[in-house]
Nucleic acid binder design. Structure first.
Length: 922
DNA sequence: GCCGGAACGTA
DNA sequence: CGTACGTTCCGGCA
């Protein structure tokens, strides 16, 4: 606890001008209370920051929360209060509104975007351990006044933060008001002098002045014709409002008449604007002592609010004490150093069969990361094995243990660990848990599965440095704890986490998903990543040239047309040219103005035919392609292959994602784009032997098949059983024509709708996509559901069930939690509903191809084939086929992919081969 | 230097 | 007012 706020300085020097011993801190300085009018400052923040720039991806606006929190952090930093509290109004009537029903009337309705933000601010305050106070029947201002009165009485300094001028009456030599001038960053201090300068009266008479002048914010009309100057003159002359009332008849002129005519209003104003200082508050001053934030609560909350910079600023503010406070928790369990074969053998024998958590100590130099040591922690022992140096015998003992399937291991991020140690020729097996994956299965929509984050969240355990980022200098010092400690801590944390997760995995029925699918898949993915895919560097360079030519041609033509050079990659500059200078019709509105995306531009072309648009689109296309190619060229490794990284814990539905580079979004839809697939080619083995061909194998219409299976719709199922063109089949039923009479237009409508259903498409969305009227779209959907009613029932049931359970499930039992299904924010709720429609389908497809990958890998290994899997693109696998293995591999791939799930419809797999990815497509 | 927004590639 | 991703560029802000 922060000792600086200890307010009982017993044993220390007594203060000279004691008014009460509570008024002093231990170091002799006065206590300083910061109290904030929550609502008024939340509103200020709300209007200072545009709501559209501050919202979570679930649609909750956070501008007021952000602004409020930022303001608070700044205030704490600048003012260094020893005590902090925030007061809020309640929605209930106050004595003011009871007396005067129009009180604060005439205010425009609270904007929709403000909704829910006060609750969030209160949550932030809880996480920051700052008391929030509200009192039935009273306003926040009265609470502020009471607190200011109490604190000043105890000889504290008080700062009242409020956007309400009534607070000025509280100012005295102990109390100042921080009154925001504009926004929430500019909050000047109003002391007695400042108030007198501005309103010509001392603070204790401000309320008299306000009663005369009126306060429009509170809907309190004053005396017409009387402004601050006149009011101040009277106040000075008669010593205050009381004196004025006694001398009413002496005041001459028109304003005097006006005053007499409105004197009841003035009296009422004065009654209403007097703040109460004698409330019975549920919290006393000592409870407001400034505390460190609840770190894990802040982490959770700021995660969901998507506040990243604020999080840092907040922790920086409390930074020093933080590390001190938690240093105990961060220390590694005591561990032994194992350096010789004998020591290793003995230690591992001692921990035989116990689940052992393994973590690496690594060192990164010039972009490459090397393993420098391995930490092993069990429930009863901990060891660290430095790899540099490690003699051959000892390395053999270690290698055998790591590779042993009989030695159960817990790892965090198995795939990365597997890849790192494989660079040293070591193999990792026997894994029984990967805490990153467990964490993901339990909570698939987390932002991060970093060990430190999970440990903090689930265990309230703080670990500072991750095992992976010991700095170079320390890493060399293998004798000390510098390298060992973070790795041992990491292994320790993973062990604790694994225990913590075990029960939850069982509860959720996720054990099979972990042990039977994700864990073995992690190793398959690791090998795919290590293998990489061969590319033709010359091919990439040729494309770079070609696309560059297109870019400069389209660019200069575009510049010629508009008569100047702008940055065609800047939507902002484009907006100026298109809508201000060329005066083209406005497109759909976006946050920053009007859209210039491809849809909007195409639309403009049909409307105006302006030649600039065509060049712009060509320029955009070509730059996008060049970017892709450029990214690929930079990613080619020394082995002439591109090694992507698959992320197994990112997509909330259970899909993989691919990064660095992303090989799951290589163009395929346009001719020019497909040229990029030509540079992905068949390559050589590590032994230098060439492979024979690439093979692609993909599921056709897997999502619609899953939809047919899950819904049990007889019509859809028979479509797949008959093996007919799905969209033609569906089209023939909806439009009531023979399959062969389904036109292309009909087919594409049906296709769009079928896929749209998987995403929770509305008739509005469908109409936009197909450029038809909403009416026509609605009819189309009605006909569709009339014919395939079980689909509609299924989709409805999904959302209902999910609302009841709180989650959706895939065919393998993978869950996605959707708490927003019961949100009272419509936008949030509808987003969650669409996610609920999609998650079981997209997720089941992910389950299926993951199972297929395990099957294919296993079959390849079992048959001793050299052919290998290279890529996965959601419903497609790319393999590299060794000489003479084409037929056998094709057969096994078909078998494994088709057999990966037992659905009520067949899983159709199409396979192609060729020298390039493009040629292998079918 | 960081971060959000816009745009666009894939399934 | 259609789900799930990753990357790049721009421009405002610190």
């Amino acid at each position: 606890m922060a000792s600086s706020t200890d307010d009982t300085p017993e044993g220390s020097e007594p203060s000279p001008e004691q008014q009460g011993r509570g008024g002093r801190r231990a170091d002799g300085s006065r206590n300083r209370l910061l109290v904030i009018d929550g609502h008024s400052m939340a509103f200020r923040a709300f209007y200072a920051l545009p709501p559209e720039n501050f919202s979570t991806d679930t649609g909750q606006h956070t501008n007021a929360v952000y602004g409020f929190t930022a303001m608070l952090i700044n205030l704490i930093k600048d003012q260094k209060p020893s005590h902090v509290a925030v007061a809020f109004d309640l929605d209930t009537p106050t004595f003011r509104s009871e007396e005067y029903t129009e009180y604060k009337g005439g205010r425009s309705k609270t904007p929709e975007e403000f909704h829910g933000q006060v609750d969030l601010i209160i949550k932030v305050m809880e996480a920051m351990r700052i008391p929030t106070i509200s009192l039935d029947g009273y306003e926040a201002d009265d609470i502020l006044a009471t607190l200011a009165y109490q604190a000043a009485g105890a000889d504290w300094d008080v700062q009242v933060v409020s956007g309400d001028r009534d607070a000025f009456q509280l100012v005295n030599d102990r109390v100042t008001v921080l009154y925001p001038k504009q926004g929430v960053t500019n909050i000047p201090q109003m002391d007695a002098e400042a108030i007198e300068e501005k309103y010509f009266v001392p603070p204790h008479q401000y309320s008299d002045l306000a009663a005369l002048v009126g306060e429009s914010a509170d809907n309190l009309p004053g005396v017409p014709g009387v402004g601050p100057k006149t009011a101040a003159k009277w106040i000075k002359l008669y010593g205050g409002l009381e004196g004025i009332l006694e001398n009413l008849d002496k005041i001459g002129g028109k304003v005097g008449d006006s005053l007499r005519a409105n004197i009841e209003d003035v009296k009422r104003n004065r009654r209403l604007n007097r703040l109460l200082t004698d409330l019975d508050l549920p919290v006393d001053l000592d409870a407001m002592v400034s505390q460190h934030p609840d770190r894990s609560a802040i982490e959770d909350l700021f995660d969901s609010l998507q506040f990243n910079t604020l999080r840092k600023r907040l922790f920086d503010l409390f930074g020093e004490e933080e590390s001190e406070e938690e240093s105990d928790e961060q220390s590694a369990p005591p561990h032994v150093l194992l350096e010789e074969a004998g020591e290793l053998t003995q230690w591992f024998a001692g921990t035989n069969q116990a689940q052992a958590s393994v973590a690496l100590a690594t060192e990164t130099t010039g972009g490459t990361t090397d393993v420098v040591g391995i930490a092993v922690v069990t429930s009863s022992a901990a060891a660290f094995i430095p790899l540099e140096p490690l003699d051959a015998d000892a390395e053999k003992v270690l290698g055998d243990w790591l590779a042993s399937t009989d030695a159960p291991k817990i790892v965090h991020d198995f795939k990365t660990v597997f890849k790192l140690i494989s660079a040293r020729g070591l193999h990792l097996a026997g894994e029984v848990d990967d805490t990153a994956i467990s964490g993901y299965l339990i909570q698939p929509d987390r932002r991060s599965y970093e060990l430190a984050d999970l440990a903090q969240y689930h265990l309230r355990l703080s670990i500072t440095a991750s095992a992976n980022d010991s700095s170079g200098q320390q890493a060399l010092d293998l004798g000390g704890n510098d390298v060992a400690s973070p790795a041992v801590v990491a292994a320790y944390a993973a062990l604790q986490l694994s225990e913590h997760f075990a029960g939850q995995l069982v509860e959720r029925g996720a054990n099979q998903l972990l042990g039977g699918l994700e864990l073995p898949l992690a190793e398959v993915l690791a090998r795919m990543e290590l293998t990489g895919v061969a590319v033709s560097v010359e091919g990439l360079e040729r494309l770079l040239d070609d696309f560059s030519k297109t870019i400069s041609a389209a660019g200069s033509e575009a510049y010629r047309i508009i008569g100047k050079e702008i940055n065609l990659g800047s939507p902002k500059q484009l907006q100026t040219v298109l809508f201000d200078e060329l005066e083209l019709p406005r497109t759909k509105k976006i946050k920053t103005g009007y859209s210039t995306d491809a849809d909007a531009l195409t639309d403009l072309i049909t409307k105006t035919g302006h030649p600039f648009l065509e060049q712009l689109l060509a320029y955009r296309d070509a730059t996008k392609l060049r970017q892709t190619v450029e990214g690929l060229r930079k990613a080619v490794g020394d082995d002439g292959r591109i090694h992507t990284t698959y992320l197994q814990t990112v997509a909330a539905t259970g899909r993989l994602s691919s990064t660095n580079p992303n090989l799951q979004n290589i163009p395929v839809r346009s001719d020019e784009g497909r040229r990029i697939r030509e540079v992905f080619v068949v390559g050589h083995g590590r032994d230098g032997n060439p492979y024979e061909t690439l093979m692609t194998a993909d599921y056709s219409q897997i999502e619609m098949r899953i939809m047919a299976h899950l819904s049990g719709d007889e019509g859809l199922i028979s479509a797949f059983l008959e093996g007919e063109d799905l969209h033609r089949f569906v089209g023939s039923h909806i439009f009531g024509v023979a399959p062969e009479d389904v036109t292309n237009a009909m087919r594409s409508k049906v296709k769009a709708m079928s896929y749209g259903l998987v995403y929770g498409l509305s008739s509005f969305g469908l109409s936009k996509q197909l450029a038809i009227s909403v009416d026509e779209a609605r009819t189309l959907m009605r006909d569709y559901f009339e014919r395939f009613g079980a689909v509609r029932d299924y989709l409805r049931g999904i959302v209902e069930q999910a609302r009841k359970d709180g989650f959706t499930s895939t065919i393998e039992g993978r869950r996605r939690y959707l708490p927003d299904l019961s949100s009272d924010n419509r936008q949030l709720r509808e987003m969650a509903e669409r996610a609920a429609l999609n998650a079981p389908i997209q997720g089941s497809a992910a389950d299926i191809i993951k199972k297929a990958m395990l099957g294919v890998d296993e079959a390849l290994t079992q048959r001793g084939l050299r052919s290998r899997m290279l890529l996965q693109v959601h419903d497609e696998l790319v393999l590299e086929i060794a000489k003479g293995e084409t037929a056998e591999v094709e057969a096994l791939v078909r078998e494994q992919m088709a057999g990966a799930a037992d659905l009520s419809v067949p899983l159709d797999v199409s396979v192609g081969t060729g020298a390039s990815w493009h040629d292998a497509a079918h």
